[in-house]
């Protein structure tokens, strides 16, 4: 009986190892990154296929949703109301300006997307220090939105 159990256990271990193995390519894929020039002209190294996006820019959240990336968003602001289901994510506050660093860093995001008004300068600095890439887009005009959509397409692999 004991032997069967241990056999089963080792089998399960093997299977789970196998799953890890099949996960591995994904992991290496996550290590890949792209250089993105954001809406403010800053060059930022962004991981490809980020899994945990904190998006405090309503327009960007909508675009990511349209690109099938809604599952990758972990937190938004209460201004991100399109689609309304966005608000089922963690809501960090009303405006990006009112946010502070700890709640954002606590979510262990691999990408933060801000708009205008942006995050406070100190918060940005703290995110930089924590090694979290931040993209900023001023999505008010079509000619600003199109490059943003292209960038997100590149990041999410939907180009």
């Amino acid at each position: 009986m004991v032997r069967v159990a241990s056999l089963a256990a080792s089998l399960m271990l093997l299977i789970s190892l196998g799953i890890c193995q099949t996960d591995d390519p994904n992991a290496t894929k996550n290590d890949q990154s792209v250089m993105i020039t954001d809406g403010m002209g800053r060059e930022v190294e962004v991981p490809l296929h980020p899994d945990r996006i904190v998006c405090v820019n309503a327009a960007a959240a909508e675009v990511i949703y349209a690109l099938d990336g809604a599952d990758r968003i972990v937190a938004v602001t209460s201004a991100c109301t399109m689609p309304p289901a966005m608000l089922e994510r963690e809501v960090l506050g009303r405006s990006a300006l009112s946010l502070e660093a700890e709640p954002i860093i606590a979510l262990k995001p691999d990408l933060v997307i801000e708009g205008v008004p942006p995050l406070k300068e100190d918060v940005r600095k703290q995110l930089d220090e924590a090694g979290i890439p931040v993209l900023q887009y001023w999505a008010l005009h079509a000619d600003k939105i199109l490059p943003m959509i292209e960038d997100f397409g590149a990041i999410l692999g939907k180009k």
Partner: peptide, 11 residues
């Protein structure tokens, strides 16, 4: 202020 409405931090 940091905890009462977490993750929102009040001024």
């Amino acid at each position: 202020a940091r905890t009462i409405m977490a993750p929102v931090i009040l001024p």
